[in-house]
């Protein structure tokens, strides 16, 4: 699959990794003080927008785990976002409102779907892998389009947000925000550990040189498939949070545009960095907000910025920051 990932990437060296964790911690601190600032500015709606951004940051980070570290460009990851949102809608319609149970449901369905479609997709490489994950993503999309009990194409409004141990604390936007932030931080920590583990080293090794890994005794398939499933499960958690933020679910969450946006966030932030994916989600969604307020033709401007970014900083925002020297890790 290394034939499809373009920019040459070094495995993260220890100082660079430590620096990225520091930057992530700074980001988390900024996120943590955002709600009081928003209230002080008299713009509490900002918190709801920020919740959406945090949920997408989780999804982008999950995608980076396989795209950046495993060289698997999944173009169907919005499907898992969708499974997460519909887990909330469908389970709550059966009276299961607990956030953790809904997350469990989302993870089980996503793991099963990822296991089957991943096992098939991983028989292919490069552009074929991209296309086949896209095809599976679209199959999930059209399944929910035709699910008329839950509004089909029109989507389905949630009567309430999820509960936590019977309590409806998430009805408060502020609480939902901090719960989402908590998940982002915990999942970042988990992804960071995975990347630095035995498993992560094998995954990164397969990205670097598949043949060499086989020649020392690693069959790539099982490691790639495991990473694919982990990534899908984390993405579905983002979907559960996103449904709570929007209080609405629809197949639009799982369209192929959405999958493309997730890839854009990862590329924007700098692939294979985790922190970059979070930053990429923030910047991409903020740009969308601001440019969208500026003009109807905002995708044009956004496209232009993306082109410039890829041309001048293939390693995204991370590469840009690291090049300024301000953020450069001490050797």
């Amino acid at each position: 699959m290394s034939d499809v990932t373009t920019a040459p990437r070094a495995a993260p060296r220890a100082p660079a990794m430590a620096m990225r964790v520091k930057v992530a911690l700074i980001l988390f601190a900024l996120f943590a003080v955002l709600p009081p600032v928003a209230v002080a500015l008299g713009d509490p709606f900002m918190v709801l927008i920020a919740t959406r951004i945090l949920a997408y940051a989780i999804a982008a980070m999950a995608l980076d785990l396989i795209l950046g570290f495993g060289a698997m460009v999944s173009f169907g990851h919005a499907a898992y976002l969708g499974f997460g949102t519909y887990a909330v809608a469908i389970l709550s319609s059966y009276g299961v409102n607990d956030l953790l149970l809904q997350m469990l449901g989302a993870v089980v369905v996503s793991a099963a779907f990822a296991l089957v479609t991943g096992a098939i997709s991983l028989r292919t490489r490069g552009v074929y892998f991209i296309m086949i994950t896209l095809a599976f993503g679209q199959m999930a999309f059209f399944f929910f389009i035709s699910l008329s009990a839950y509004g089909g194409d029109d989507g389905y409004g949630l009567s309430s947000r999820s509960t936590i141990f019977g309590s409806d604390v998430l009805e408060n936007d502020m609480t939902l925000y901090y719960v989402t932030l908590g998940f982002l931080i915990a999942l970042f920590a988990a992804c960071h550990r995975i990347v630095g583990s035995r498993f992560g080293r094998v995954l990164t090794g397969i990205r670097e040189n598949r043949e060499r890994m086989e020649a020392v005794g690693f069959p790539p398939f099982r490691y790639q498939l495991t990473a694919f499933v982990i990534s899908a499960c984390i993405t579905s958690l983002a979907g559960v949070l996103l449904a709570n933020q929007a209080e609405f679910v629809s197949p639009a969450f799982m369209s192929w545009h959405r999958s493309g946006e997730l890839i854009v966030m990862v590329v924007f932030g700098g692939i294979g960095t985790l922190t970059g994916a979070i930053g990429g989600a923030v910047v991409a969604l903020l740009l969308e907000e601001w440019l969208g307020a500026l003009t109807h033709h905002w995708p044009l401007l956004f496209g232009l910025i993306l082109v410039l970014m890829v041309l001048f900083s293939p390693r995204g925002i991370t590469g840009l920051l690291e090049r300024t020297g301000l953020w450069r890790a001490r050797k």
Binding site: F199, V202, F218
Partner: peptide
């Protein structure tokens, strides 16, 4: 990595390998 391939499972996700 070559040593890792012959010593124990590589399905270990949390302990830092470095």
């Amino acid at each position: 990595l070559a040593v890792q391939a012959r010593s124990g499972s590589s399905f270990r996700f949390f302990r830092p390998v470095a």
